[in-house]
């Protein structure tokens, strides 16, 4: 960097790599320059790694946006304050809110208090930085944890898992199917689980699903 050892050729080389990677990631290079840089990256894993990191940083930055920008806009929302200062509009807004509340009361979703949700094991639901290419069942469990049944069922049904992991996947899948009202499919999935070999607390969870399935019939 300019603040230390600017005369060093190697350091200058590294600086150039960084700056070129930043320019690339920000889309400041022409198509020809991009292609040239990618060619260099193909033959230089170190440079490729830097390029990859910078592109990842750029896309993460695009996804987050300026932190707090919305709050800042809200704070400077003079037009909203002017709107609220008008009594007639306040009355109209109050009527709208009241109507919305009434609609929500009439059409509110049924509580799922009767559903049985498996407790979450923290190790299963913590997202990992480097997700394995075939780790779908973890994604399925995370969807189950947020009660996104359709998505969880689809992911768990297709998740490739072996041995104990497959048993775990099936317990979550059976529970998701049961909570979705698909009892026959839930029972079928649960039949694949060897209850006798399950350790604590999974055997208890599976037995609870089994009991609830029996109650449904």
């Amino acid at each position: 960097m300019a603040d230390s050892h600017p005369e060093s050729h190697s350091e200058s080389h590294t600086e150039t790599m960084l700056d070129r990677a930043v320019d690339f990631s920000l889309g400041l290079l022409s198509d020809a320059e991009q292609r040239e840089l990618l060619e260099e990256a193909r033959s230089d894993p170190e440079f490729e790694a830097i390029l990859q990191e910078q592109c990842a940083a750029r896309e993460s930055g695009r996804a987050t946006g300026v932190p707090g920008a919305n709050q800042q806009e809200a704070r400077s929302g003079h037009s909203r304050r002017r709107f609220l200062a008008r009594p007639r509009r306040i009355a109209a807004m109050a009527a709208l809110v009241a109507a919305s509340v009434a609609l929500l009361l009439v059409f509110r979703p049924q509580p799922d208090a009767d559903l049985y949700w498996l407790p979450m094991d923290g190790a299963l639901t913590t997202p990992r930085a480097a997700e394995s290419l075939q780790d779908d069942w973890r994604a399925g469990v995370q969807l189950y944890a947020t009660h996104e049944l359709d998505a969880a069922i689809e992911v768990l049904e297709n998740a490739d898992a072996q041995g104990a992991t497959a048993q775990l996947r099936d317990i979550y899948l059976a529970s998701a199917l049961l909570n979705d009202g698909r009892t026959a499919e839930a029972a079928e999935v649960l039949r694949r689980v060897d209850l006798a070999s399950l350790p604590h607390p999974w055997r208890g969870y599976a037995q609870e699903i089994q009991r609830r399935l029996a109650d449904e019939h």
Binding site: Q52, A63, P127, A129, L133, A139, L143, E148, A151, V155
Partner: peptide
Amino acid sequence: VLYEMPSLLIARHPDIQMNVGSVDV
């Protein structure tokens, strides 16, 4: 796979704009 972005961040990305569950699916 290449940027190791979590589902939440991918879902919020301006080129994607999906909910997290749909991203995972």
